[in-house]
Amino acid sequence: MTAIEGLESGAITPDFGVDDNGTFDKGEKNNIVHFDSDGANGYIDLTTAIQKSNNPYFMTVGKRIRDYFGDDNLAKYAWKFGLGVSTSGNVKASKNWS
C-alpha cells in the first residue's frame, strides 16, 4: 500500500531507489532503526523492495509521503483500502468472512 500511495501521489517514481545499509534514520536525535536480521542489501529499487519486503525502502517512501503531503496522508490512503481508522475518527467495520 505504501508503494501504491507513493506512486499515485508522485512522492516516488517506478525507478526510485534507496541505498539500504541496514538502518533507517528517522531524522530525530539518536533515533536510528537497525535491521540486524536483514542486514544491508545495497541499492534497492521498488521491485526488489516488494520482493524482499524491505523496511528501509518503505520507511523512506513513507517519510517522503509525510514530508510532501503531511502526517495524515498515508492514513487517509489506508482508509480507502478499508484499513485502520479514518482521520475523522470513524472506525471501519471488519468484514465477516465466515
Rank of each mutant, 00 (worst) to 15 (best):
V18H: 10
S86K: 03
T60L: 10
A78L: 12
V85W: 04
S88N: 15
S88F: 12
G62P: 13
S53N: 09
W79H: 14
S86I: 03
F58A: 13
D20V: 09
D38N: 01
R66F: 00
I4Y: 10
V61H: 04
K63E: 07
A93G: 14
G17H: 05
G84Q: 12
N21P: 00
D72C: 03
K95P: 02
E28Q: 14
G89H: 05
K63Q: 12
Y68V: 02
V91L: 15
G62K: 14
G82C: 12
A3E: 02
D15V: 04
P56E: 03
R66H: 00
K92M: 11
I44F: 00
F24M: 00
D25W: 08
K80R: 15
D72R: 09
D19G: 01
N90L: 14
T60W: 13
V33F: 06
S98V: 06
H34F: 06
V91K: 15
V91G: 08
P14S: 09
N41Y: 05
N54K: 04
D25S: 10
K29I: 09
G84I: 06
F35H: 08
S98T: 06
E5M: 13
V18G: 08
T13M: 06
I4W: 08
D71Q: 10
D67I: 04
A49V: 08
E8C: 01
R66M: 02
I4A: 12
T48N: 04
D15E: 12
N96M: 13
K26L: 12
S53R: 09
A3D: 04
D20I: 06
E28T: 11
G70V: 07
F35D: 06
H34A: 07
G42L: 02
N73V: 05
N73M: 06
A93N: 15
R64T: 11
P14H: 03
I44S: 00
T47V: 11
S9D: 02
N55A: 15
T48G: 00
K80D: 15
A75K: 01
S53E: 11
F16G: 00
D38C: 00
L83G: 03
F69W: 11
I32K: 14
N30C: 07
E28R: 15
D67A: 14
S37Y: 07
Y57D: 02
G6W: 03
K29Q: 14
T87F: 02
G27A: 07
K95D: 07
K80C: 09
Y43A: 09
S37C: 01
A78W: 07
L83K: 05
K92Y: 05
G82E: 10
G84S: 12
E28V: 10
T23Q: 03
V18E: 04
F35V: 08
F16L: 03
K76H: 14
Q51H: 07
T60P: 12
G17I: 00
I50K: 05
E28P: 01
N31K: 14
Y43T: 09
G62R: 11
F58Q: 04
D20N: 15
T87V: 15
E5V: 08
A3K: 00
G84P: 11
N55D: 15
G42E: 03
I44K: 01
G84F: 09
A3I: 10
H34Q: 10
W97V: 04
M1K: 01
A49G: 13
I65F: 13
